[in-house]
Each structure stands twice: as C-alpha cells, then as structure tokens.
C-alpha cells in the first residue's frame, strides 16, 4: 500500500501507550494510556482514523497492533485472576518504546 510505514514493533515487544488527548477523533481509550503492554499481533497498516474522521485520506497508513495487558497492570484493585488479560487494537503512533 502506498504511503504505508514499515512496522516498528514486532510480536512480543513491550510497549507503553502514549498519553494524549489530541483535538480530533482518536481511538485510544484513556484507560490504556500510560500503561505498559505487549504486542500480541500485527494486523497490517490501516488509514489513520484521526485524519479520516475530518475528511482526510488517513495517509500514511498506520501499522495497527493488538496489544495485550495484564488486567492487574490496568487496575490495581482488579478482582479476577492474575492471569486475566485485556487486548486492544492500537495504531503505531500511540506506541512508545520502553
């Protein structure tokens, strides 16, 4: 795909979700912002919704990853099992190297 960035992260990499509230439509919920997780899947590159939502072309397409978090890392008072996970799809420009 034209204008597609090469994926910067690979499966298994530890990443932190960037903190931010850009003045646009963004798909990174606040409950994962600032949290540390692990790349579970690379889905490929998709147009950036922050541009698409305002009539832009969404390019360059952003690599999209499924990131896995331990629930106990998201919520300090998590009630379930220590092995429980939360998975969420995050575009690369929201991921920071640790």
């Amino acid at each position: 795909m034209a204008g597609e960035a090469a994926a910067k992260f690979k499966v298994g990499d530890q990443v932190r979700i960037r903190v931010g509230v850009p003045p646009t439509h963004f798909r990174t919920p606040e409950y994962v912002q600032g949290k540390q997780g692990k790349i579970d899947t690379l889905w490929g590159a998709f147009p950036n919704p922050e541009s698409l939502a305002y009539g832009g072309d969404g390019l360059p397409a952003q690599p999209l990853y499924q990131v896995e978090f331990a629930q106990t890392d998201l919520w300090h008072d998590y009630k379930g099992s220590a092995s429980d996970k939360l998975l969420i799809d995050i575009y690369e420009h929201w991921l920071e190297t640790i």
């Binding site: 798909r27 990174t28 919920p29 889905w43 998709f46 919704p49 999209l64 499924q66 629930q71 009630k79 379930g80 099992s81 092995s83 429980d84 996970k85 939360l86 998975l87 969420i88 799809d89 995050i90 575009y91």
Partner: peptide, 28 residues
C-alpha cells in the same frame, strides 16, 4: 470486572481459566 459481568449473565467461568477481554477499538 469481566468476571462480574459473566456472573451477571449467569455464566460460570472457572478461576483457573484465563479471561481475555478484547476491546475492538480500531479496524477489526
């Protein structure tokens, strides 16, 4: 609290089973 939600739906999942919540936040 996924296990609390499961309980509300009357769904019994053993503590030893890993619960994986998937938030469909993007293109999948």
């Amino acid at each position: 609290d996924p296990r609390g939600v499961l309980q509300e739906f009357g769904t019994a999942i053993d503590e030893a089973v890993q619960v994986r919540v998937i938030d469909s936040s993007a293109d999948y």
